[in-house]
Amino acid sequence: MLKKTTVYLLLFFASLLILSCKDNVLPKPGSYLRLDYPEAQYATFENTCPFDFEINSKAIIKAEKDCGFSISYPKMKATIYLTYKPINGNINNLLRDAQKLTYEHVIKADDISEQPYLNPDKKVYGMFYQVNGNAATNSQFYVTDSTKHFITGSVYFYAKPNFDSIMPAASYIKNDMQRLMETLKWK
């Protein structure tokens, strides 16, 4: 009886030893896409419209109708659309339309933060909107001199809005949009 028990115990420990010697199977850690963008180099974009501004030299700018521009970033699959409108006693309507355009994204947005911009020396006043979440546009702005000129800008990505995926590109372009606002000069 003692021999039988000893044999069973030895078999039990041997099988335990054999089974426990396997490598532990662990799931692979999540990987992250590394996106390195070149450091932005800015140059003044001069044109025949009533304003000038600085733009990233890596961006491709194309004139649209009525002093509007599309500034595209092919590697990021994104475009900033600038729209110019002269003020003809309709400043309140233009401001309302610019704010309405931003707040139409409130359905998909997690948060919309406003950052006022004031530069009395250049007579440039405006608002920069950061739209967080899976909205169609992540950054928008408007600038005006409040008497003659009004410009709106918004960025759109050619991809399904997934903020986590486009966050690095959205951050890079957001910096370019803020630089555009800060360097804008009326002629």
Rank of each mutant, 00 (worst) to 15 (best):
K28D: 13
K28S: 14
K28F: 07
P29K: 08
S31Q: 13
S31P: 04
S31Y: 04
Y32L: 15
Y32C: 08
R34D: 08
R34M: 14
L35H: 06
D36P: 10
P38S: 00
P38G: 07
E39H: 01
A40D: 11
Q41W: 10
Y42Q: 01
F45H: 08
F45C: 06
E46P: 14
C49F: 13
C49H: 00
F53E: 00
E54C: 00
I55L: 15
N56A: 09
S57H: 06
S57G: 11
S57V: 07
K58P: 12
K58T: 08
A59E: 01
A59N: 04
A59T: 07
I60L: 08
K62C: 04
E64I: 15
K65Q: 09
F69G: 02
S70C: 02
I71F: 03
I71P: 02
I71A: 02
S72Q: 05
P74S: 02
P74I: 10
K75V: 05
M76D: 15
M76E: 12
K77S: 12
I80W: 04
Y81A: 12
Y81L: 14
L82M: 01
L82H: 02
L82E: 00
T83N: 00
T83L: 10
T83M: 03
Y84D: 09
P86M: 08
N88Y: 10
G89Y: 02
G89P: 07
G89A: 06
N92D: 07
N93P: 06
L94G: 01
R96P: 07
R96A: 09
L101C: 06
T102M: 02
Y103D: 09
H105M: 11
V106C: 12
V106R: 09
I107Y: 03
I107V: 14
K108G: 11
I112L: 04
I112C: 09
E114N: 07
Q115W: 01
Q115F: 03
P116E: 09
Y117A: 00
Y117M: 01
Y117P: 01
L118V: 11
N119E: 14
N119K: 01
D121N: 10
K123L: 02
G126S: 13
M127H: 13
F128C: 03
F128N: 00
Q130C: 05
V131E: 06
V131W: 06
N134D: 08
N134I: 05
A135G: 14
A135I: 11
A135V: 13
A135Q: 15
A135T: 09
A136K: 13
T137I: 12
T137N: 15
S139L: 13
F141P: 08
F141Y: 12
F141M: 07
F141I: 09
Y142P: 03
Y142H: 03
V143P: 06
T144V: 13
T144R: 08
S146P: 07
S146N: 15
T147L: 10
H149C: 12
H149I: 01
I151G: 01
T152P: 03
G153T: 01
G153P: 05
S154A: 12
F157Q: 13
A159P: 10
K160R: 09
K160M: 14
P161T: 11
P161H: 09
N162Y: 00
N162E: 02
N162I: 08
F163M: 11
F163H: 04
D164Y: 06
I166G: 03
I166D: 01
M167F: 11
M167P: 05
M167D: 07
